[in-house]
Design a binder for these strands. Sequence first.
DNA 1: CGTTGACTTAAAGTTTAGTTCAAGGTTTAT
DNA 2: ATAAACCTTGAACTAAACTTTAAGTCAACG
Lengths: 133, 133
Amino acid sequence: MFTIKEASEKLNCPAHTIRFYDKEGLLPNIRRDDNGNRIFDKKDLDWIRLMTCFRATGMSIADLKKIVELALQGEATIGQRRAILEAHQEEIKRKQQVLNEAFEAVSQKLEVYNQIQKGNPEDRFLTYFDERP
Amino acid sequence: MFTIKEASEKLNCPAHTIRFYDKEGLLPNIRRDDNGNRIFDKKDLDWIRLMTCFRATGMSIADLKKIVELALQGEATIGQRRAILEAHQEEIKRKQQVLNEAFEAVSQKLEVYNQIQKGNPEDRFLTYFDERP
DNA sequence: CGTTGACTTAAAGTTTAGTTCAAGGTTTAT
DNA sequence: ATAAACCTTGAACTAAACTTTAAGTCAACG
């Protein structure tokens, strides 16, 4: 069992963010000790990890909440949960594409800078401000 | 030459966002017609595309502004610009990793749902709420 | 015994990146 | 000629996701 501080350190996630998620209903069934302090077990940490993983890839708190609510209703809602996850997976794919394109764009810019610093002025046309300042 | 509406359509980016970027200093040297309306040429569109590409991958307006300001100062600042782009490229790589991990996590969850719906209850232990509701 | 530090809450504040609004100018169509 | 369809500005507004603050409880240390 872990305190919120330990959980925070293990998850690399601020304690008040964990409290915030709890308040938002993203972490059901978090137990308390005699003083009313939250206590987390390994399973709680796994769940929080899942939540932060989804958050980090752009799923909104509202959608996370929806998943939690469906999960609490039991297996009858698995179809709906699956639909949400499949949509999110598509969203992840889209983001991956955007990142790949951006990586290419940055690489090209860096290549142009390299050429300029090597003294290949004929390659400057690829830059914007060096072309029409 | 294009009006802001045409630029907006070509870039798939709201006109007021383009104005906002202009106001923030992200689009230097945008010319105006006799009525004071902005007019964009192909090169302007390319530059805006670059800005939105960087934005879409998490670069802040403040950092974009920095790049623009450095670019306006000429080639002496290429080293600094390169440093910013290299840092951003690392950031992109980090984001790609996060997405890959999330994709895996979602795939696993979906696989668990599949098993449950196929009626393999022994696989339910992989889910959270079905285990400790 | 007092103070240090971790925990609690609710509520207010912050940040970022737009978006919308209000008020107005110009050109084109009917 | 008058309305529709553009464009302009600055300022106010919004939304999401925290983050900070304020006020308080509790246990341990010296």
